[in-house]
Amino acid sequence: MPGRLRSFSPGCAWQLLRHFSHSPLAQGRLGGSYSNAVVIAAAVRTPSVSFQAEEQQLAGVVLDELVKRSSVPREEYKQVIVCSSPTTPAPECRERLTRVAKDLGLQCDTLALQDDVCSLGGLQMALDSLQRVGDQCIITGDLRCQVMQPTHGVLANELMAVQQPRSRTRNQAGAASSTGLTTLGAAALSWTTMQTAQRLQLQPLALLREFAVEQDHEQAMYRLKDRQPVTPSEIHTWNMVTGTQKAIPEGVLGDLHANRLCTHDFRQITASHLLTHLVHSLPAGALGCTFMGMPDGRSMVLVLEKLVPSIDQVQGLPLITLYTREPCPLCDDLVHRLEERFAGQYRLEKVHIDRKENVRFLRLFRHDIPVLFLNGQFLCMHRLNEEALMERLEALNRSR
Rank of each mutant, 00 (worst) to 15 (best):
I248N: 09
I248G: 01
I248T: 14
E250N: 11
G251H: 01
L253H: 08
L253E: 11
G254V: 02
G254C: 01
D255E: 15
L256M: 06
H257Y: 13
H257W: 12
A258I: 00
N259V: 05
N259A: 12
N259W: 03
R260A: 09
R260L: 06
R260C: 08
L261A: 07
L261V: 07
C262Y: 13
T263M: 12
T263S: 14
H264Q: 14
H264V: 02
D265E: 09
F266W: 10
F266I: 05
F266Q: 15
F266S: 14
Q268I: 00
T270I: 10
T270M: 12
H273K: 04
L274V: 08
L275V: 10
L275C: 12
T276V: 03
L278T: 06
L278E: 05
H280W: 05
H280L: 04
S281Y: 01
L282I: 10
A284T: 03
G285Q: 07
G285A: 08
A286W: 00
L287K: 03
G288D: 08
G288K: 09
C289A: 09
F291A: 05
G293I: 01
P295K: 09
D296A: 10
G297S: 09
S299D: 12
L302H: 06
L302C: 14
V303W: 09
V303M: 10
V303C: 13
V303T: 11
E305K: 14
K306A: 14
K306V: 05
K306S: 12
V308M: 12
I311E: 11
D312M: 13
Q313G: 00
G316D: 11
L317K: 15
L319M: 08
T321K: 06
L322Y: 02
L322E: 09
T324H: 15
T324K: 11
R325C: 15
R325M: 15
E326T: 15
E326Y: 13
E326D: 15
P327W: 07
P327M: 09
P327I: 08
C328L: 07
C328M: 04
C331Q: 01
C331V: 01
D332C: 04
D333V: 05
L334G: 02
H336I: 01
R337A: 10
E339N: 14
E340R: 14
R341W: 05
R341N: 12
F342Y: 11
A343R: 06
Q345G: 03
Q345E: 15
Y346P: 01
Y346M: 04
R347L: 08
E349C: 10
E349S: 12
K350P: 01
K350Q: 14
K350I: 01
K350D: 02
K350M: 07
V351P: 07
H352A: 11
I353S: 03
D354F: 07
D354C: 11
R355Y: 11
R355V: 09
K356Y: 11
E357H: 08
E357G: 00
N358G: 01
N358P: 03
N358A: 06
V359W: 12
V359Q: 15
V359C: 08
F361D: 09
L362Q: 14
F365E: 02
F365I: 02
F365N: 04
R366C: 11
H367K: 14
V371L: 07
V371M: 04
N375D: 13
Q377W: 00
M381S: 13
M381L: 13
H382T: 00
H382L: 04
R383S: 15
L384V: 05
N385V: 04
N385M: 06
N385I: 03
A388R: 00
L389D: 10
L389V: 10
E391K: 03
R392K: 12
R392A: 11
E394W: 06
